[in-house]
Amino acid sequence: MKISTVIIFTALVANLGIIPFSYAEPSVEIIMEKTTYSYCEKLFYTIKVSEVTGNPAIIHIRDETGKGSSAIPIPITDLENPIPSRVAFEKEIFPLGKYFIDVNYSGAQTTAEFTLIDADKVCIPEVVKPIMANWLSGNISDGFLIDAFQKFTEEENIFKIPFDINETSVYDITIPEWVKNVGYWWLEGAINDDELVNAINNLIERNIISLSQDKKDEI
């Protein structure tokens, strides 16, 4: 009688899926937004997991030579976790070529790759964005914004500024208040770098952004 009871109990437990017991390692996958990027673009990918274990995903990004980032812990709170980069690819930091994203999550590992190319796009360095924000807030003058455009893109020569900017003239450059809308659009991502450059150059060419008339006469 006792033996029969044990057999029946064992069968019931097995039917409930409790016996046999095995541990399945969670899976992890990298879903790339795209596999080719160019300067000025921002890396975007999604980490997809089979279960949320409470552990972070550990990410390394490396180039073809093996040179890479330090370990980057990414909290995993959902089965699909979008990972947008906060900064764009810049020539001064990222050489052209192939890159790899290595992810380790609760013992599971995976790798994805992408290629960085030079598509000859107009690219304004990220350092200009806080300067633009300060100008929009009224913390710096019009001239300091134009000076930043010129200094930080001097090598590319994308802004066509026809007047010299020095310690004196920097205070004599005027930009109409309504032009700030263009700055807001750029910071919010409504227009890209190329569109901002075209807008500023057009305003300079039309003398909407200019030196004050008195200073022009002196020059």
Rank of each mutant, 00 (worst) to 15 (best):
I204E: 04
I83K: 08
P75S: 09
L96C: 05
E64P: 14
L96H: 10
A88D: 11
R62F: 12
K180Y: 08
Y45Q: 14
Y39D: 06
G138S: 06
I124C: 01
E64V: 08
S50F: 05
K216H: 04
I146A: 03
T36H: 14
P95N: 10
P125E: 02
P125G: 01
E51R: 08
A199D: 14
G66I: 15
E33F: 15
P84H: 15
T115G: 02
T65R: 07
I76S: 06
N181T: 12
R62P: 03
P125F: 00
E154M: 08
I30Y: 06
R62N: 13
I165H: 08
D142M: 00
N201M: 13
E113C: 08
Y37N: 14
L145T: 01
T174R: 07
D214P: 01
I18T: 11
F114C: 02
V128R: 01
K121G: 04
P56I: 12
L79S: 01
I61S: 05
E29V: 11
F152E: 03
K121P: 04
T174S: 10
I131A: 01
P130E: 00
N201V: 10
M32G: 06
I31K: 06
P73T: 08
L211R: 03
G54V: 12
S4E: 05
K215L: 03
T46C: 09
N134T: 04
F89A: 05
D102F: 11
S70L: 04
Q213N: 06
E29M: 10
Y23K: 09
I204M: 06
I101A: 13
P162W: 14
G54M: 15
I47Y: 07
N134K: 03
I158P: 02
D194V: 10
A88M: 05
T36W: 12
P73H: 14
I3L: 03
N166T: 07
S85P: 05
Y39M: 15
L79K: 10
T111G: 00
W186E: 05
P125M: 02
V103H: 07
K42W: 12
Y99P: 05
T53H: 10
I200M: 10
I191K: 11
I8C: 04
T35W: 07
R206L: 13
T5V: 05
I31D: 09
D120T: 09
T153C: 05
E177N: 14
E41S: 09
I30F: 12
N201R: 06
T35H: 13
V182S: 05
G66K: 13
E51Q: 14
E92C: 12
Y45W: 14
H60S: 06
G68T: 08
C40P: 12
S38I: 11
